[in-house]
Design a protein around this nucleic acid. Structure first.
Lengths: 189, 189
DNA sequence: GTCTATAACGAGATAGAC
DNA sequence: GTCTATCTCGTTATAGAC
């Protein structure tokens, strides 16, 4: 693994666990085994690092979403796989990098904000597709609400559940929210 | 207004907008009009300030929830008033103080964590009551899911919607999520 | 209760040798 | 690409006068 990728992986973990304002170049240097000054060769400023982080994370998302979409599973199973991405974060005591940066938005270099917005748009659009797919497969029942509205609600709910469950050290709370989301989509009432 | 309360109000705004790691005593000093050193007379350490902030915010919550509960409105109207609390934050470009601290949990003085957990518990319990009330009034239809599970989902969703809507500068996204939450509770499918 | 002054430390960043 | 050395600034916090 190239040093640049080691740095990115380490910084990504630190942002997801502690926030962009919650770690320093010294933290990365200690973990990857080079000196602080050497980090600036790869990422001249912390804002440069931040831009790369959101870019890499968006690529990871695209890859994961493509993998899920490509399967021949029914839409409800695809949604469960999407939820499993969040569960994986929780187990590593991480929240979503997008969600973390969103809370810190007012303190970030404004160059990071368009990519952040795009990250949420991407999630919402993908979820909307899955919901529409599920409707036509008759595994989801959306009632009067539009699919895109429901997609936003799913995204918000998973982001919120992730941060609350981690902070309260209550994994069961995440599962209960996930369960409520699935049943409210599938129930016939 | 006493200086101590001015400091608390200012610090609360700064936390909700920028995060606990996103402001300094210098920021408060500039806004309230005293010197940095004088702040330490009121709050010796930043952790002391943090503890007071979560305590005061929890009191504000209790007051707001009591006010809503005391009305004779139907449960769905009470829930709309609860949602309006989040809308008010969004309009001030703030997120929930609890949600913000939750993302920073791994960097906070551990003395703050029990109060933070209690804050989320309080929200969940109140929402559970409202949902049960709404069921008996037949304005809410919960299907198979339990009221407390649904309450957690509501809380998570509103927290997530608040931070995403603020970061993407898209108030409509918040309204769409709020709308989806209400319709999924009230629809007969 | 607020002030000036300062300590002690860590942050992001740069220069230049190897 | 990584190092040592250094800079500048901002951070939390303390001491002691008023």
């Amino acid at each position: 693994m190239k040093m640049k990728d080691k740095i990115l992986a380490c910084a990504q973990k630190l942002v997801q666990q502690r926030g962009f304002n919650g770690f320093s170049y010294a933290d990365i240097a200690n973990e990857v085994g080079i000196r602080k000054a050497s980090l600036h060769h790869h990422f001249p400023t912390k804002a440069d690092l931040g831009l790369s982080l959101i870019k890499v994370y968006s690529e990871q998302l695209d890859s994961a979403l493509f993998s899920i979409s490509s399967s021949s599973l029914p839409a409800n199973e695809k949604l469960l796989q999407y939820i499993a991405l969040y569960r994986g974060s929780l187990e590593a005591k991480r929240i979503c990098l997008g969600g973390m940066l969103a809370t810190e938005a007012l303190t970030l270099d404004t160059a990071m904000l368009p990519s952040l917005k795009q990250f949420f748009t991407r999630n919402t659009e993908w979820l909307t597709e899955i919901l529409i797919e599920g409707q036509s497969q008759q595994v989801f029942i959306l009632g009067n609400g539009s699919a895109s509205n429901y997609a936003r609600m799913l995204l918000s709910s998973l982001q919120g559940a992730l941060l609350i469950s981690r902070a309260t050290d209550n994994a069961e709370a995440f599962e209960q929210t996930a369960s409520s989301l699935m049943t409210s989509l599938m129930r016939k009432s």
